[in-house]
């Protein structure tokens, strides 16, 4: 059906600018500056970079929460409208879903787990009633939660459990692509590992494609075969995870790698100077 069978996401020349400040101090920031990348069906691509590098903007444009200023996005073989109408967003949501960073905020604190998942089931697959209840049970089982959790409110769950629910909600749409925007960043390390293992299992079982957005290089190694490094809205380096992390070619990637805490690591104080070096 789709013309590009192997690439589920194809992005070319994507641009996005934001205006910041007012009056004389008004200036434009290039959140995305000519970004092109392709993600093979069934693969996992990690997008790394520091805050403000444009990686979250990229994710938000992909799922339709933000509109691009220029460039093209082809999702599952279909070009995506730059300013999507609601119906197009709904259609797109069946191809691509997103898991957000803050597990606490990503669930409505006044609605039960069951209600959150059912809403997505009803929106995309018109599944209601007993069938919906059965599907909720299946989804909860897949993310490692028990049927009893269906009636819980988000406030009664731990951060890791909340994020599992958010994953179940995303899976309810039966998407081909899952965008994970810092999805484990707010969890502590042991829970992080559990959720990462879960995500790997789900990807295997459902043959999903992941776009894994993170600032954490140690996470990158665990999840993805390929990585792109973003800085100030541009992709500065790309390649296989081992290659990029072990033998980085771009100065910024080296800086990122050297900034990651690890045993015996001492933070360099002159980060300002480093940034200028990279600039040059």
């Amino acid at each position: 059906m789709s013309t590009t069978a192997e690439n589920v996401i194809e992005i070319s020349g994507l641009r996005k600018q934001f205006a910041v400040g007012r009056g004389k101090r008004r200036r434009t920031v290039h959140a995305l500056d000519d970004v092109s990348l392709a993600v093979a069906d069934g693969s996992c691509l990690a997008v790394v970079g520091e805050s403000g590098s444009g990686k979250t903007t990229l994710a938000r444009i992909l799922v339709g929460l933000e509109s691009a200023d220029g460039g093209e996005v082809v999702l599952a073989g279909r070009p995506v409208a730059r300013r999507p109408r609601r119906a197009e967003r709904r259609a797109r949501a069946r191809d691509i879903q997103m898991v957000f960073q803050d597990p606490n905020g990503s669930l409505n604190r006044r609605r039960t787990v069951e209600a959150a998942i059912k809403e997505v089931l009803a929106a995309h697959h018109r599944v209601t009633g007993d069938e919906a209840r059965r599907r909720v049970g299946e989804l909860l089982d897949q993310v490692g939660l028990r049927p009893a959790h269906a009636r819980a409110l988000p406030g009664e769950l731990s951060g890791g459990q909340q994020q599992r629910v958010a994953i179940a909600r995303a899976l309810a749409a039966e998407p081909r692509v899952l965008v994970l925007d810092e999805a484990v960043a707010a969890l502590d390390v042991s829970v992080q590992a559990q959720v990462l293992n879960l995500l790997a299992e789900i990807r295997q079982a459902r043959r999903l494609t992941y776009l894994f957005i993170t600032h954490d290089l140690s996470v990158v190694r665990q999840v993805s075969e390929e990585v792109v490094v973003m800085r100030q809205g541009r992709i500065v380096e790309r390649g296989s995870t081992d290659e990029v992390l072990d033998r980085p070619r771009h100065a910024y990637t080296m800086l990122l790698r050297d900034s990651a805490p690890r045993p015996g690591w001492r933070p360099r104080l002159s980060t300002g100077a480093d940034a200028r070096e990279v600039e040059a």
Binding site: V63, G64, L65, R86, A87, E88, R89, R90, A91, R92, A93, Q97, M98, F100, Q101, D102, G105, S106, L107, N108, R110, R111, A116, E119, V120, A123, H124, A166, R169, A170, A173
Partner: peptide, 24 residues
């Protein structure tokens, strides 16, 4: 917050998201 954005990206209308999610 994520829950509103999640509802928005499902293609639910602004009215539905505002009344069902934000208002309560």
């Amino acid at each position: 917050l994520g829950y509103v954005q999640a509802a928005e990206l499902q293609g639910l209308s602004g009215l539905v998201v505002s009344v069902r999610h934000i208002l309560p």
